[in-house]
Amino acid sequence: MDLTLRTSSLPHDDPDAALAFYRDVLGFEVRGDVGRGRTRWITVGPAGRPDTALLLAPVAADPALTDAERDTVLGMMAKGTYGRVVLATPDLDTVFDRVQAADAEVVQEPVRQPHGVRDCAFRDPAGNLVRVRELRADAG
């Protein structure tokens, strides 16, 4: 079987903040932006790689959620225990500097983990954990 990971999704609670972070700080291109007000579905992805995308979805607007479920999800997002994603870059320090310059919440500064991977971690504006690992020429 030949399967690839096409689109994964992270919740947002503020579309403008999400857009500013993923487009202006991380440098993703915007592939789609539908809906209005706080209820927008925004698709972003790395430039030059149309085969992979991240959907930023308005969790609070999902009509299938009960009020209690919505409260729980919003609470978990605020607590930082809900969404997470792992990105990769050949130049971790540049990414980290940009994130830090944008005043994002840093969870972990760039460090070489015991298993050999060098990575860092921070929060997106909705509280999702974004981990970025460094790609090396000699390893994945």
Binding site: L74, K79, G80, E105, Q108, E109
Partner: peptide, 16 residues
């Protein structure tokens, strides 16, 4: 939610 976000920053700092 604001209180939770404050706690998140505390937790992340402990982590860091």
């Amino acid at each position: 939610l604001l209180d939770f976000a404050r706690l998140r920053r505390v937790r992340d700092r402990i982590d860091r």
